[in-house]
Design a binder for these strands. Sequence first.
DNA 1: GAGCCAAGTCAACGGTTGGTGACTTATAAG
DNA 2: CTTATAAGTCACCAACCGTTGACTTGGCTC
Lengths: 192, 192
Amino acid sequence: MTLTESAGHRVRNAAITRATILESARKRFAREGYDGASLREIAADAGVDAALISRYFGSKDELFSEVVMLACQPDPDLFGGDPATFGERMAKAALEGEQDGEKLDMFLIMLLSASSPKASEIVRRCSRDQFYQRFEEWLGGPDVDVRTRLSASLMMGMSLSRVIDDTKEFDAVRRAKLQDRLAAIIQLSIAP
Amino acid sequence: MTLTESAGHRVRNAAITRATILESARKRFAREGYDGASLREIAADAGVDAALISRYFGSKDELFSEVVMLACQPDPDLFGGDPATFGERMAKAALEGEQDGEKLDMFLIMLLSASSPKASEIVRRCSRDQFYQRFEEWLGGPDVDVRTRLSASLMMGMSLSRVIDDTKEFDAVRRAKLQDRLAAIIQLSIAP
DNA sequence: GAGCCAAGTCAACGGTTGGTGACTTATAAG
DNA sequence: CTTATAAGTCACCAACCGTTGACTTGGCTC
């Protein structure tokens, strides 16, 4: 997803360029976190000069905010169906494939950006106002805040565990067992 | 824990200085992660010049390795008692007090250093060879690797959740409910 | 085609980082 | 007291970061 074409000159379109930068930033932030992803890397991925990012988004903070704002909207495939099968769906999304992992990008960004106070503050505000609120509305029931928080912790932990200690070394049988157990645990975490 | 005394000159002792640096590094890494903690900050905390760290430990990597190696040894209070009450003890340690949190420092370091590939690799190797192995020995039973991994993910997720979205806003009642639920979930995660 | 303005590039700044080598100083042996 | 050596400090380097301002270039209107 680069703007530079194979042959010669490129089309100048502010909207497309902005969207391309945003997409590159999302991928970088989800793979390296706020501090780890540099504007120059993001710009190189998008095929533009780094100065253009500051021009379009003002600062790295604001670019990050916009990315988080987009990533914080809960995927309806996961947070929209029957709550009774939520654990199953979530465990599947967390463990099966999804290298590009758009659905779980938010958790990865939260996770890998936790070490930066500024990024943490942005993520905190955005996840509280956007993600948790919708999640709680969808989930409902007693102690909904406790249950929401617990299941979110679980999902983040699973993402972290996947990043740090990748599941590649598990064979198919163990991964299936892990997935089943994870599904049961997530289901328990949201059970009223 | 600074080496500089109030009045005048300081005692020169390599062993003590080394230990002081190591302790400062542990705290910094547990609060800011590998990338976030700078050698100059660590040195300032210890009350020495930053150059001394490179002299004693060679590089930031090696300092980090040594810190992780120490932090990776499972606390016998948590991973030594009756497995039947493990969830309870763990949930208590994760949620109650423990600002200085020595027992959970390892999880914090793993968490906040996940964005650095080098640090991740160090943490991965150390936790696999030291932590997981002892944890599995203590836990035992069928599918011990799956259960170990699952509960570790849970604990990391809870640490992360605590860092990102601190529990200060929860009153005592909700925190108690959260703790009870967390205990039950952790217990389920290690159940054979 | 001329001209204007946004889109994009370039070079540079100040700041911070990890790391290195020369230097100073305290401490203990003689 | 002298002195050798380890302990500690200082100045400095190259690399990278986010950000800025001046500059160039493309695309549209007239």
